[in-house]
Nucleic acid binder design. Structure first.
Length: 479
DNA sequence: TCCAAGTCAATATG
DNA sequence: CATATTGACTTGGA
């Protein structure tokens, strides 16, 4: 049922109201629909999958999501967080019983909700559930009950016996699949869980800045140079890209208000190769860090930066440096670009010369092959004449300063999608929606630290939105 | 196949 | 204990 253009009005309507976020809480009752909120009673029809929750007719959630009006994801998470903390309810419990998600996912969702229009149907589900839960007058009580029960069960288990539980309680959730089974006997095949060293992450980030979408060849190279599995590098890029994207969305949400002005960036601003990030600047105080050292090393947040670049749309572009293959110059020994993941001298200071841990490189022990260590000790490979330098030279900026990081910054504007596809006013309206407006004079507006970044990415975001809009999403977001 | 979006689940932190 | 982070896996689309 992908959409049926207006359809059963009433049922849709009642459902819609059910979800409605504004709070009123008033009536709405009467629902023509039988479902409702509570589920205390019996029936737990489990639908196909083991997905718990919200009982009632299985399919409902998805249907609800399909007809749900736009929800304020940020507002919802904010309220959920409040309710949870006020009542001392944990994310784990909430996630498992209300959303059907694990603690980590809940944490992520609550901390970084994506705007409604950027969510897929699946991604909207948790928000609809949260809204439903917020609307349920007994929500807290129910969770508290669950908590109690869980505790009870736990005590019992640890205390005496075995037996099992399942006595009372409404709701279902048969959580607990015990874990009995052997603690740790056999399988040592438990993958160790790769943990990238800070230096490795740094190197990857640098590589990302040069090329957010590395070619297989490049990936292979990176993997080799860092001594990581290819899949790890691939996964890292996927994850990093998507997490950066999310950060940007966040800013979008929070900036509900004004967004600085200025920023030239007119269409067609070519990216600047630039690397510099010098920055520093003050303004905006905000911590500004002081002594990098001291107790805790800061390592602050902003982390991700710069945008994703992808020019799709017209192929004209020429994008920017990074040459991809086909660099116009730089031929000579094609070289296939090699990044020297910087790391050069840096190090200095700190660190113990870490040698990273046991990466499993080759399963079958016998490290004969040779290379084994090497890796971190400064620089490691690198070079080879890298004539191609022309572009790749970017590596590392910075350095020479105390701590590391801060290498970021470097906005690369996707250069507005040239010619917005089909002029369509829709695009315009959307654009205007985002781009600030009034408040021209504005005075202070301090705080734009990353606002810049945001502005740079705006185009990219718009581009994507537009792309998405062109197809699919028959309804929704227009005004 | 690649990619993006969602998640999981092990670990890190607090 | 709880919450936050993050590499890997899963799903769904081209």
């Amino acid at each position: 049922a992908p959409e049926s253009p207006m359809s059963s009005s009433e049922s849709v309507k009642s459902l819609t109201e059910l979800v409605q976020q504004p709070c009123p809480a008033i009536e709405t009752s009467k629902d023509g629909k039988p479902q409702e909120s509570s589920e205390p009673p019996v029936s737990e029809s489990q639908s196909t999958t083991p997905l718990p929750l919200s009982g009632h007719s299985a399919l409902s959630i998805q249907e609800l999501v399909a007809v749900s009006p736009e929800l304020d994801t940020y507002g919802i998470t904010k309220r959920v967080k409040e309710v949870l903390t006020d009542n001392n309810l944990g994310q784990r419990l909430f996630g498992e019983t209300i959303l059907g998600l694990t603690q980590g996912s809940v944490s992520d969702l609550l901390a970084r909700p994506k705007p409604w229009h950027k969510l897929s149907l699946k991604g909207r589900e948790p928000f609809v559930r949260m809204q439903l839960w917020l609307n349920d007058p007994n929500n807290v009580e129910k969770l508290m009950d669950m908590k109690r029960m869980e505790k009870k069960a736990y005590m019992k288990r640890r205390h005496s016996s075995v037996s099992d539980s399942q006595p009372c309680e409404p709701s279902s959730v048969g959580i607990d699949y015990s874990q009995g089974a052997s603690p740790q006997p056999q399988h040592q095949l438990k993958k160790p869980r790769v943990v990238l060293a800070p230096e490795e992450k740094e190197a990857l980030k640098r590589a990302y800045q040069q090329k957010p979408y590395p070619s297989p060849k490049t990936i292979e190279e990176l993997a080799t140079q860092l001594n990581l599995k290819t899949s790890t590098v691939i996964n890292w890029f996927h994850n990093y890209r998507s997490r950066i994207r999310r950060e940007l969305f966040i800013e979008e949400i929070q900036a509900g208000s004004q967004s600085q002005a200025g920023s030239s960036d007119s269409p067609s601003a070519r990216s600047s190769r630039a690397v510099h990030s010098s920055e520093g600047d003050s303004c905006d105080g905000v911590d500004t860090e002081g002594p990098p050292e001291g107790k805790q090393s800061g390592l602050e947040a902003d982390e991700y930066s710069n945008a994703t670049t992808k020019s799709q749309g017209g192929q004209a572009e020429s994008a920017f440096e990074a040459g991809e293959e086909v660099p116009q110059d730089a031929r000579s020994s094609e070289k296939t670009e090699s990044f020297h993941l910087g790391m050069e001298s840096l190090e200095d200071t700190d660190d113990e010369g870490r040698l990273k841990a046991p990466r499993q490189s080759s399963p079958p022990g016998s490290q004969s092959s040779g290379e084994t260590l090497e890796t971190m000790p400064n620089s490691a490979t690198e070079e080879d004449a890298s004539t191609s330098a022309a572009s790749t030279s970017v590596l590392t900026g910075e350095s020479s300063f105390k701590s590391k990081e801060s290498s970021e910054k470097m906005l690369s504007v996707p250069s507005t999608s040239s010619t917005l596809a089909a002029g369509s006013q829709k695009a315009n309206s959307i654009q205007s929606l985002f781009s600030f407006s009034e408040a021209a004079s504005s005075k202070n507006t301090r705080d734009n630290t990353l606002r810049k970044k945001k502005a740079a990415n705006l185009n990219n975001i718009i581009h994507r939105l537009e792309k998405a809009a062109s197809r699919e999403e028959p309804v929704e977001w227009e005004f």
